[in-house]
Amino acid sequence: MSIDTGAVARANEILRTEAGSGVHGLAIAGVSDHDEAGVFVEPAEHVVGLAGPVDHHTWRDRPEGARSEAGDRECTLYSLRKFLRLAVAGNPNLLLVMCAPESSVYRTTALGDELRALAPAFLSRDAARRAVGYLDGQVAMLLGRGRQKDMPKRPELVAAHGYDTKFASHALRLGLQALELTEHARLTLPMPEADRERVLRVKSGGVPDLDAVLAEVTAVRDRAEALLEAGRTPLPEAPDTERISAWSVDAHRRHWDAMPAA
C-alpha cells in the first residue's frame, strides 16, 4: 500500500523550527538557503497497525541530488519515534530543534512545547562525545579522507579561497558548540556573538589559510575532549532515557486520543 508520507507528516506535525545556518545565526544574505526541521506523531495505524511506518518526510524546492541555491527552502519532518532515537544518540542537528530560540519556532503545539522543555534530558557526555566524533568526520572529509559521496563539492569556493570555506566553517561551528555543551551543559542559539563572528569569518573567506582554520578547530576540539576525559563537565554521563521514553508513550497516547474518529 502506497503511503502519502507528506500528508501524514503535515497532518500530525507538533513542532517545526528553523534549522541550518539560520538557527545558528550564520546565514549570509543572498547566499544561504533556508532549512527547517520538525517532528510529527505517527498515527496509531502506522505504529501498532498494519499501515506501515512513516519515519520522516522531506520536501525541497529543488530535485533530490541538486544543490540548493540562495533562498531555496528545504524541510525535513521526523516521526517522534525516529527523532527521539536520533536525539538520544546525540545527533547534533536534532538537538538544535529543541534548543532553537522562540523566534525560530515556526509551529508548535502543546506536545511540541513539552518536547522542547525536555531538552536538558537529552544533553549528556554521550551527546558531547558524539559531537566531537562528528567533528572529526567533518575534518577528515575537508582533508579529502572521507567517503567520496560525502566530500565537499563547492569548487567555486575552492577556486576563490583555496578550500571549501563553508564546509570548514561547519567544522569550526561544531567544535565551538561541542565545547559549549561540555563546559556549560547548554547550546546557545543563535551562537554567542564572539563564536558567531569566528565562524562567519571562516565562512566568508576571511581566513585565507586552511591550516589556520584547522589549528583553531583542533584547539577547540581538544579542549572539549580533555574536559570530557577528565570528567570536568556539568553534563550527566548519559541522557535520561527513562524520562524521555515515558513522555514519548504518553505523548503518543494523547495525540491518538485527540485525533478524530475514522
Rank of each mutant, 00 (worst) to 15 (best):
S79L: 10
A66V: 15
A51W: 01
E45T: 15
G65L: 11
R62A: 15
A89G: 14
V41Y: 01
C75N: 00
W59L: 08
L77D: 00
G71C: 07
W59D: 09
E42N: 09
L80S: 03
R73V: 12
G71W: 06
L80V: 02
R62Y: 09
E69Y: 04
H57K: 03
L50F: 08
T76L: 01
G65Q: 09
G71H: 10
L50I: 03
A51F: 01
G90I: 08
P43F: 06
A89P: 14
H56Q: 15
E45V: 14
D72I: 06
A66P: 01
T76S: 02
R81P: 02
V47C: 09
A51P: 01
F83I: 10
S79Q: 09
W59S: 11
G90E: 13
L84W: 10
A51C: 01
A87E: 06
D61W: 02
P63K: 10
S68M: 04
G71Q: 08
G49R: 08
F83A: 06
A89N: 15
G71F: 10
A66K: 08
S68Q: 13
L84A: 03
E74D: 14
Y78M: 08
V48Y: 15
A87V: 07
R73F: 06
P43C: 15
A70D: 05
L80K: 09
L50M: 09
L50N: 05
R62F: 12
V88A: 12
V47A: 07
H57P: 04
R81E: 03
E74I: 04
G52F: 03
L80C: 08
L84E: 12
E64V: 00
L84S: 11
R85Q: 15
D72F: 05
P53Q: 11
Y78W: 15
V48F: 14
V47S: 05
G52P: 04
T58N: 00
